[in-house]
Design a protein around this nucleic acid. Structure first.
Lengths: 245, 245
DNA sequence: CAGTGGTCTAGACCACATC
DNA sequence: ATGTGGTCTAGACCACTGA
């Protein structure tokens, strides 16, 4: 009755369908924003019932791999769109005012050999190279965040030229538009630190000012590590907000 | 065909069933850990099909209001059990070692009038009272966290006696076991601050040491605010970890 | 063994978006 | 009018749990 390989007892059908659909997203067959075939089309294609496909897609929706819209269709996630754009950005003003990025100073951008820590965290080859750049982010004309980003050349070939051509302040937009890479999940570590000389200079503060240090690793579809970044934040009028369910 | 009020066009049946089931949890009819009737029983009771009840319960499972176990049944969430116990506790050792709470010094515990800020954040009446207590938490015999907790008397009547009788270090266990209150969600704000005299003394540190300050408001079922707490953390060998999807 | 949730199917009809 | 996802039903069978 089904064209899916179904040995006597195997994983649920809907789970196998899910994996097949994800495969077509990972392979680049379906890029961010692409509309999937209808439930009935997919059901016919794989020889299962529409309800089974629905269950597979519901799971993918719960994983935020797709979004469904009644009357329109099911679409591969594009996370850098307005609605989800600030999902990964947790710095907010204490007074609740809308954050306005008024400046974005690039301190440097170069290609470097990866450090041992980067090779480990990003699962790189021993002689891998990375793009490394530091930026100072100003909100309402005040420098608030020193941002240090590390990107594997293997994932973002030619990133330096792409960035210098169009220095988009939101790099996740560049990831999606220029490289078809979607950040699905980030792991972060937060600490309070005393400002070093370099940090104090970049943020125009006194040495040893308490700063919030945020170390992030970002992962793409299939849990592939994609990015490391460190944020050094001045949290006198701003804070990091988090919601745990 | 259905005993649910169903005007020409209303909210989906499964959503109404969901609300009715939640109502029985909020009212205390079904307490944490209680086993729900089977899908067929509920379906019969409300005059809908089993698939509709399944959809309602699947939604509640996604909201983490219940857990389902094949062959056993569906149970009202008890979040303070080992599996979910550390869901709301995000402080971890840098070296990944298992955290060992080796001390828990109660600095004070008293009943107080609520401050205006507390009245607002906890949605209290103007003359409401709160229990207020400070504790120092030691990991591996080193004071790491100064914890300041505020609980509304209206939600936790007689909390002081309960706590002094059995000073459980994990207050969320007390919430569930003694008051039938479950923390469903917390909202947190994180900042880097310089140690005040009081904080430096409590944590045995130099004045102005950079510390991680965490302000939390906890919410129960139905988004009722339940708890405010502030953590002042020494993050030299520890950090706050977060995962964003 | 009986009772629970988990999978899968088939089909009817509704609501929304677009042309 | 057509095509999409959303709701609801009915029924068969599987897998796990515990007495």
């Amino acid at each position: 009755m089904s064209t899916i390989t179904r040995p006597p007892r195997s994983r649920p059908l809907y789970s196998q369908i899910r994996d097949l659909l994800i495969g077509r997203m990972v392979s680049g067959d379906w890029r961010p924003g692409h509309m999937l075939p209808s439930e009935f089309k997919i059901a016919e294609e794989y020889g299962v019932s529409q309800g089974t496909v629905r269950k597979a897609i519901e799971d993918m929706e719960a994983e935020k791999l797709v979004v469904r819209r009644q009357g329109k269709g099911t679409f591969v996630i594009a996370r850098s769109l307005p609605s989800t754009h600030f999902n990964f950005f947790r710095i907010t003003a204490d007074n609740g005012a809308k954050l306005q990025l008024t400046g974005n100073r690039l301190l440097f951008l170069r290609k470097d050999p990866a450090t041992p820590g980067e090779i480990k965290a990003l699962a790189l080859k021993r002689d891998a190279e990375v793009f490394r750049f530091h930026r100072v982010r100003l909100f309402h004309n005040v420098p608030i965040i020193l941002e240090q980003i590390v990107l594997p050349e293997a994932v973002f070939p030619n990133f330096e030229d792409v960035y210098r051509t169009d220095p988009q302040p939101h790099v996740y937009l560049i990831f999606e538009r220029k490289f078809g890479v979607v950040v699905m999940r980030v792991e972060e570590e937060l600490r309070a630190v005393a400002a070093t000389a370099e940090e104090a200079t970049a943020l125009d503060l006194a040495l040893a000012t308490p700063l919030l240090r945020l170390d992030r690793v970002g992962y793409g579809i299939g849990d592939r590590p994609i990015e490391m970044r460190t944020l050094i934040c001045h949290t006198v009028n701003y804070h990091y907000r988090n919601s745990i369910v």
